[in-house]
Amino acid sequence: MVTINLGRAEAFEQKLENVQNELGIPPMEHIPVQYVNETDWLSELLPYIPSLLFLIPLLMVSRSIGGGLPGAGGPGGRNVFSIGKAFPSGKKDLKSTVKFADVAGLEQPKAEVMEFVDFLKTPEKYAKLGARVPKGGLFVGPPGTGKTLLAKVG
């Protein structure tokens, strides 16, 4: 098969038609022109092969060391993408172990928090009195006064 670079397709078609008219070939017997656009996939993919040869082993090593893609790491597996997760040590129990007896002093705030917790546990009792469910609570005070400890009680 011979490949000929002809430049613009319109110019080639015009020259071919002129030559056929000069030779006296009737228009119904003119040579049909057919364009074929072929792609050599090997030459298209060849530039990407070095990158793939570097990335595929790197991906395989990272999967074997880190437990796979983000979120695919097994339980307790170390993964670069697990930094900053909510439960890095595997503790997933949201139930706090702090009790009201653990909070020293702060009798008035303790009483208010106990009332707030009671309201959240049995809202029907307070709904009869016309109270609405609160959207949240706000602890205000200087550092070191037990705000976080009170928030954990429940």
Rank of each mutant, 00 (worst) to 15 (best):
M1F: 13
V2W: 05
T3L: 13
I4D: 02
N5D: 14
N5K: 14
N5M: 07
N5P: 07
L6R: 04
G7P: 06
A11R: 06
A11W: 01
A11G: 09
F12V: 08
E13D: 10
E13P: 00
E13L: 06
Q14A: 13
L16I: 09
L16Q: 09
L16H: 01
N18K: 07
V19E: 08
V19S: 08
Q20W: 08
N21K: 15
E22L: 15
L23N: 02
P26T: 02
P27M: 06
P27H: 08
E29R: 15
E29P: 00
E29Y: 14
E29W: 12
H30N: 15
H30P: 07
P32D: 12
V33D: 00
V33W: 06
V33T: 15
Q34C: 05
Q34F: 08
Y35T: 12
N37P: 06
N37E: 15
E38A: 14
E38R: 10
E38D: 03
E38T: 11
T39C: 04
T39M: 10
T39K: 13
T39Y: 14
D40P: 08
W41D: 02
S43I: 01
E44K: 11
L45V: 13
L45E: 02
L46D: 05
P47Y: 04
I49P: 01
I49Q: 07
I49R: 05
P50I: 02
P50Q: 06
L52K: 01
L55Q: 10
M60H: 02
M60Y: 10
M60N: 05
V61H: 06
S62M: 15
R63N: 07
S64T: 04
I65K: 04
I65E: 00
L69M: 11
G71A: 05
G71L: 07
G74F: 04
G76A: 03
G76W: 05
G76H: 04
G77H: 06
R78T: 05
N79C: 05
N79E: 00
N79W: 05
N79A: 06
V80N: 01
V80R: 08
F81T: 09
G84E: 02
K85M: 09
F87M: 03
P88D: 04
P88N: 04
G90S: 05
K91V: 06
K91M: 03
L94D: 07
L94T: 14
K95S: 11
K95V: 14
K95E: 08
K95H: 03
S96L: 03
V98F: 09
K99I: 10
F100P: 01
D102G: 08
A104F: 04
A111P: 00
E112G: 09
V113P: 02
E115H: 07
E115S: 11
E115I: 07
E115P: 00
V117M: 13
D118L: 06
F119S: 12
L120V: 09
P123N: 13
P123Q: 14
E124K: 15
Y126D: 05
A127H: 13
K128H: 07
K128S: 14
A131K: 15
V133Q: 10
V133R: 14
P134R: 05
G137S: 05
G137F: 12
L138N: 01
F139W: 08
F139H: 03
P142H: 01
P143N: 10
G144I: 03
G144T: 02
K147E: 01
K147N: 07
K147M: 02
T148V: 09
T148R: 09
T148E: 05
L149K: 06
L150T: 02
A151L: 12
K152H: 13
G154C: 11
